[in-house]
């Protein structure tokens, strides 16, 4: 009990000393003196302190974005009147702006770093006039810039397993739009070759199909797409498999030679809608071998065959063989 009463008594004694009689006046004078002394001290220059400021990066080039966000705070060593330091210490300030249009010019093009202490004025200008910026920490801010690009990529229809061996899609699926403008960091855009729709299951129970499909969009920070869904129109038809023999065309053979290929024809197989079966002609196809380098490859044993000119109403095209032996002789 004694131990708890003792502080209470001291507090009562101090209260009595401050609030009663002449002591009270003395105390107020002391208090005012201390306060005036404090004000006088704070109003003087020459105080140095480190203040932490949030930063915001502005005026980034239109063709760039940040891969990784750089430091969001910097510590600034300032020299200023005490009041100003107190103000910066006690109040939360809006972010300091790092104007990248000014900073970027000084950046090393390969490493993209900014030596903060070489640009003290950039920060100094944003603080009170009486403030002098001494140094900034960190001394280096690294920027991970991504170049922003735009690319038009084709949309592809993704089909689930074939719905029937004899049924197929007649003609090319109509996709609206058939391409998408993708914009974002170059490193991500370069990997996007095409965009696929969500997989569609075709039952073939109706002669045609119209549907809106979502695009399967790749993940990636900063990517944007001009559309995220497409309208698809399909027509179905009964398909048949057909084959024909196509003569191999020889191109680029120097005038002084004649060339015999083994075999001279390839067997071409394809799928075609029954209604188009009669439309197919051997002249619709071109299988060729390019012999322009035949002289420089004298030990070559085979000629590779290439193809082009397929009619667009034909699909699942195969030809065999893919390479042929040959006898080259002088004319």
């Amino acid at each position: 009990m004694m131990t708890t009463k003792e502080p209470e008594n001291k507090w009562t004694q101090l209260k009595t000393f401050v609030t009663e009689g002449s002591n009270r006046v003395k105390f107020y004078f002391i208090l005012i003196s201390v306060f005036l002394w404090f004000l006088s001290k704070l109003s003087k220059d020459g105080y140095t302190a480190v203040v932490e400021f949030p930063v915001k990066y502005v005026n980034i080039s239109a063709d760039k974005s940040f891969g990784r966000i750089p430091n969001d705070k910097i510590k600034v060593s300032i020299n200023s009147p005490g009041f100003t330091i107190l103000k910066y210490k006690l109040r939360s300030f809006s972010s300091l702006k790092i104007d990248l249009s000014k900073v970027e010019k000084k950046l090393d093009p390969r490493n993209s770093y900014w030596l903060t202490n070489s640009d003290l004025s950039l920060i100094d200008n944003q603080l009170d006039p009486e403030v002098e910026v001494r140094s900034i920490s960190p001394d280096t801010v690294y920027f991970d810039f991504n170049k922003l690009v735009k690319k038009k990529v084709a949309v592809r229809l993704k089909l689930k397993e074939a719905f029937s061996k004899d049924l197929g899609i007649y003609g090319k699926p109509i996709l609206k739009p058939d391409s998408v403008l993708v914009s974002g960091p170059e490193s991500l855009i370069s990997k996007i070759k095409f965009l696929e729709t969500e997989p569609i299951e075709l039952k073939g129970d109706k002669p045609s199909l119209k549907k809106q499909l979502d695009l399967v969009l790749p993940n990636g920070k900063g990517l944007s797409f001009s559309v995220e869904e497409v309208d698809v129109s399909l027509e179905f038809s009964k398909m048949t498999e057909a084959s024909m023999s196509i003569p191999i065309e020889i191109v680029g053979l120097p005038e002084k030679y004649k060339l015999k290929l083994f075999p001279e024809n390839v067997k071409l197989t394809y799928k075609v809608a029954i209604r188009d079966y009669e439309k197919v002609r051997a002249s619709d196809f071109r299988i060729y071998t390019d012999c322009s380098d035949i002289e420089s490859n004298s030990d070559k044993r085979y000629l590779t065959l290439k193809s082009s000119n397929y009619p667009d109403f034909i699909e699942s095209i195969h030809f065999d063989p893919k390479r042929v032996e040959f006898i080259l002789s002088a004319k």
Binding site: A242, S243, K267, T269, H318, F319, D320
Partner: peptide, 8 residues
């Protein structure tokens, strides 16, 4: 493989 490719 050859026959499949040439005859389907």
């Amino acid at each position: 493989t050859r026959v499949m490719a040439r005859s389907g």
